[in-house]
Nucleic acid binder design. Structure first.
Length: 296
RNA sequence: GGUACCAUAGCUCAGUUGGUAGAGCAACGGACUGAAAAUCCGUGUGUCCCUGGUUCGAUUCCAGGUGGUACCA
């Protein structure tokens, strides 16, 4: 499995299609937003012509109304690999969703799916009684995790409480962080380029999205704005504009800024992974040579 | 050409009764186990326009220069 990672807008799609042609391999997307069929322009989902007839998986296979998460992604990719490795020696997984890539490469602990009712209750508690009250609850339920968790991060604290209440056990006992063995080899390729050049690409790509009709796409999705799938760069900023809070120009500027910030977060995550071999996105031939060398 | 005002961080600006400076935004760094394009934490990055003068000491006061803005010719 050739895993291609890197910041948004750097050219993962183009490289993956090159590799796919060379290795006669299908492409699996590791993108937590391109998986939604309603989000196309704002997520830079590759078009039919861009895909050049190469089979792509996990793009547009879910609806924004569906619940989806990193565990389901891991399961989806694993069952895909079982099918696809029968006919292909090499597969390509490409995408910038850090946690999805991690869930696939290393596995993720088996945890229950949170009951939506419980999530809602805790959300209400958070809003009415504040983070402090959820923290107190966590301290009682799981003093070990209470010491480890980022107590200022509501999502982390709430989720830990959710897990304790769902299982009746301390969350810290459920977190075993095993490195799951995979019945195939994983080769990780990272793409990087000079910061200024990357930001230029990101800014230009946002302008292209606007020309391609992102505003109309966002307007159609506006009624669904409170869904998690729409808490997404490119949409949430336009929703603010539709609400009359900011001008269109300001919204576009914010989309660019938030995309840049996202790319920085991705780099911060991926740079920590010592298994990644880094390349410049123009060096397609070099990557192919490198992968061939690894496969032999 | 004359007069007035301005010149401080990437940007918009505070400020220092003379002891080399701080806000917002931008930027930068980091964390991350079923919401992850989410969520959270941390950091001031500076020839205070230039050259002289006064002073123990000038970004601050004075003179000249340069650039900008406004008004008058």
């Amino acid at each position: 499995m050739v895993v291609i990672v890197g910041p948004t807008g750097i050219g993962k799609t183009a490289l993956s299609i090159h590799l796919a042609r060379h290795f006669q391999s299908p492409v699996i997307s590791a993108d937590s937003r391109q998986i939604y069929k309603e989000l196309r322009i704002g997520t830079a989902t590759p078009s039919e012509s861009e895909m050049e007839g190469i089979a792509h998986y996990l793009i547009g296979t879910k609806s924004i109304l569906d619940y989806y998460n990193a565990y389901e992604f891991e399961q989806d990719v694993l069952s895909l690999t079982q099918k696809l490795f029968v006919q292909h020696k090499t597969l390509i997984l490409t995408g910038g969703s850090m946690m999805y890539v991690d869930a696939f490469c290393n596995g993720i602990d088996l945890l229950p799916t949170v009951d939506p009712k419980l999530r809602l209750e805790l959300q209400e508690q958070l809003e009415t009684e504040g983070l402090q009250s959820i923290r107190r609850q966590l301290k009682l339920l799981d003093p070990v995790f209470y010491e480890q968790v980022d107590l200022k991060n509501p999502k982390r604290v709430v989720h830990a409480v959710e897990m304790c209440l769902m299982t009746g056990r301390p969350y810290s006992q459920l977190r075993t962080s095993p490195k799951h063995k995979r019945p195939f080899r994983i080769i990780k390729i990272g793409l990087e380029m000079e910061r200024a050049a990357l930001y230029q690409r990101i800014n230009d790509r946002v302008d292209e999205m606007i020309s391609a009709g992102l505003i109309d796409e966002a307007r159609e999705l506006y009624p669904y704005r409170h869904l998690n799938a729409l808490n997404t760069v490119g949409y949430k900023e336009l929703f603010q504009h539709f609400d009359g809070l900011i001008s269109l120009d300001k919204a576009i500027e914010l989309i660019k800024r938030d995309s840049r910030r996202y790319s920085k977060k991705q780099l911060s995550w991926f740079k920590r992974d010592e298994e990644i071999y880094w390349f410049s996105p123009e060096n397609t031939e070099e990557v192919i040579k490198f992968v061939r060398g690894k496969i032999k």
